[in-house]
Write a protein that binds this DNA or RNA. Sequence first.
DNA 1: TTAATCGTTTGGCTATATCAAACGGATAGA
DNA 2: TCTATCCGTTTGATATAGCCAAACGATTAA
Lengths: 270, 270
Amino acid sequence: MTVDPNQSESPRTLKTVERTAQIIEALETLDGAGVTELATHLRISKSSAYHYLATLRQEDLVVKNGEQYELSLQFLLAGEYVRNRNRLYRYGKDEVEDLAESTGEYANLFTEEHGMGINLYKVSGSDAVGSGYQTDKLQRPDYLHCTATGKAILAYLPRERVDKILDQHGLPKQTANTITDRDELFAELDTVRQQGYAHNDEEEVEGLRAVGAPVIDRNENVLGSLSVAGPTSRLKGEQFKDQLPEKVQSAANVVEVNLNMATHENESLE
Amino acid sequence: MTVDPNQSESPRTLKTVERTAQIIEALETLDGAGVTELATHLRISKSSAYHYLATLRQEDLVVKNGEQYELSLQFLLAGEYVRNRNRLYRYGKDEVEDLAESTGEYANLFTEEHGMGINLYKVSGSDAVGSGYQTDKLQRPDYLHCTATGKAILAYLPRERVDKILDQHGLPKQTANTITDRDELFAELDTVRQQGYAHNDEEEVEGLRAVGAPVIDRNENVLGSLSVAGPTSRLKGEQFKDQLPEKVQSAANVVEVNLNMATHENESLE
DNA sequence: TTAATCGTTTGGCTATATCAAACGGATAGA
DNA sequence: TCTATCCGTTTGATATAGCCAAACGATTAA
């Protein structure tokens, strides 16, 4: 019996690969799972789930811990690899560490993928709040519209890209200060461009302020941004308005220089 | 036309999943690749390679950078997740940082998977050599027979497991000091057990010494080990023989206590 | 002892991954 | 400017390989 001709979408995709990705994702959200649990979660047959897991195990992407199937440490290695390949990380790592030390607060290195912010590197300075804030949950990408680092990136993306991103992810309200209006956001991004840095005044998390500055390569592409975050009680007045922005911005400039000097020899078209 | 009945091996595996894993691995070793390059590398048709990449891209596991397909930052997130879920990391992280600070050298947290050592966490102390030793290549797992951390783990695994590991990976010679004889290694492991810690005297890399101590949970399972590594010129005499081992061992004991206290409530059978 | 629930294995049907070949765009050489 | 290669992409046809259901053996609970 032939099914109707319009097979799903025009670009032919491999169902088995899609399912593999779903299983990896499910093993994250479920924090490991047994065969039956996974099968009911994904609405596939028990035997299918079993065969997938068996194959992933053979490929060392999944390990069996008792009766639980879990993602293996292979993902840790792959993650390190991906991070180390990232140019912004390679040339920004040291500067982030310096920022954390000189400010005593959290210093971060962010980049953008699929319209969301991904933390490439995070260093907690000596005064940083909750030095041990650990999530055993998956670290979800952050929205760009409500963080200093995100606005620093958005400000230097082409207008049409920003529109697309906002269409896709919206501007969800995180706190009372979150910018939820598109025009207001674009006005803010103009300010960011004029200043060269972005503020986040409790727009993502109450009580948390941050300052972010973009890193731009010599082809005018934003690679990401540096930021420093700390409690509102400590980041205030001149410190928050002038001194910190200057520090962050100058760190971002150093990264830009390092990056452009290094890329000079190997003319990668990127 | 029916093929012969013994389809590959007894446990049925999904070829498409195997290929997906191969592609992920290939994108690592090739540092990103085009369609044709990947196809010839894996000896599959160009169109197949294309469909795999298109699907992996749709699933956000791969990104297209110009004409290059590369692993996405999704792997970084997954890696962080896997790391944070690891008990040894959660309860050992702080101790590794303390070790790095108090010794000034490199401090590491290792665990074992498939008979190889995987670095869970690495902190460079203030005196540590080549603070910026960065690999943009994939960090391969380490052999266990030629590292302090590896021998500390092997010493507390059941004899049969150790035999299996050695069968699988051998005892490849890395330097003049590498133990390449199985009996000699088992004698060394006896010593390690007696002492409670392991030495690495330039057995993996020339000029590099290290001391490692195991972390064992209250079910007698080795979860991994802590270690401190530094140049032979600095790690010598009493320091290398007594003081450093004591420091590392006591740090490992602290981790064990943290771990056992925390696991007390939720009776995970592991 | 029985019933329920798990992971695992297998047969058979159909969906689907596969390859070859062709297309269109870009680049380089003549 | 035209031609020849090299890409990445699309598509048709075919056989492979993934899918479910059902049954099995092992554990655990009732």
